[in-house]
């Protein structure tokens, strides 16, 4: 079977411009396979966040086609977007947690929107929080947690649905080095379970420590791409 058909995510000559003549992404061609761990690097404004937004259909490509889990994300209607997003977990630099809801409620959100029975929601939320060492914090509110704990909650929310794709946009941007590695280990572990993981980062320490596929973007273009052997992840 052709790679483009097997790929979980495929971008074909994708460009995105927010203003005439100013391209956030230009003629990007990339494919990500099932279970692949990929790091997107590049300076601020290189187009890393835009690329992730195109994959989870928060933005629409100006040119080109984007295939995500067999669906053309660049042509999806508004009503079809939720069903695609339910198969994608997203982690943000600023965590994006609901401050008035408890940790448990924040994580449960991803299951509630798909109508998972309440009992199953509780069981699965407890399981993922336990896996991430947060079971004792489940009735706390996000603002009473440390930055690392908040990001772990965000990861729990992204993973609780067992998504086929996990996107992380600068997930360690607000954390110190030790916590960054802890968070990256959790994200990288998802790839070992078959999830396609794409992480946008400009943290050179992460790029050095983590193997897998490295894609470098500059001025909206892919300037280099290489794979390195598995590094620290999985240790």
């Amino acid at each position: 079977m052709h790679d483009a058909v097997r790929a979980t995510v495929g971008l074909f000559h994708v460009s995105k411009s927010y203003a005439a003549g100013h391209f956030a992404l230009r003629d990007v061609c990339l494919e990500f396979q099932r279970g692949e761990f990929a790091l997107l690097s590049g300076p601020s404004g290189a187009g890393k966040t835009t690329l992730l937004k195109l994959i989870f259909a928060a933005e629409r490509a100006s040119e080109g086609q984007i295939l995500v889990l067999g669906r053309n994300a660049s042509r999806l209607g508004a009503a079809a977007i939720p069903s695609l997003r339910r198969r994608i977990g997203v982690v943000f630099q600023d965590f994006k947690l609901m401050p008035r809801r408890t940790v448990e409620e924040n994580v449960a959100l991803a299951l509630e929107v798909v109508g998972t029975p309440r009992r199953e929601v509780r069981a699965r939320v407890f399981a993922i929080l336990k896996q991430l060492g947060l079971q004792d914090r489940r009735f706390h509110h996000p603002l009473s947690l440390s930055g690392g704990e908040q990001q772990r909650v965000a990861i729990a929310r992204a993973l609780v649905n067992e998504p086929e794709i996990l996107l992380a946009d600068e997930p360690t941007g607000n954390l110190d080095e030790e916590l960054s590695l802890e968070i990256m280990d959790l994200i990288a572990a998802a790839a070992k379970r078959g999830t396609t993981v794409i992480v946008a980062t400009h943290d050179s320490a992460i790029l050095e420590r983590y193997g897998g596929r490295h894609v470098r973007l500059e001025h909206g273009r892919v300037v280099s791409e290489h794979s390195t052997p598995a590094g620290r992840e999985g240790e």
Binding site: P82, I88, V90, M98, A110, V113
Partner: peptide, 16 residues
């Protein structure tokens, strides 16, 4: 708005 956008991000339908 943040909460509503987050719901949309995790795949909540417009009716949800």
């Amino acid at each position: 708005r943040d909460e509503l956008e987050l719901l949309a991000l995790v795949g909540a339908s417009r009716s949800f």
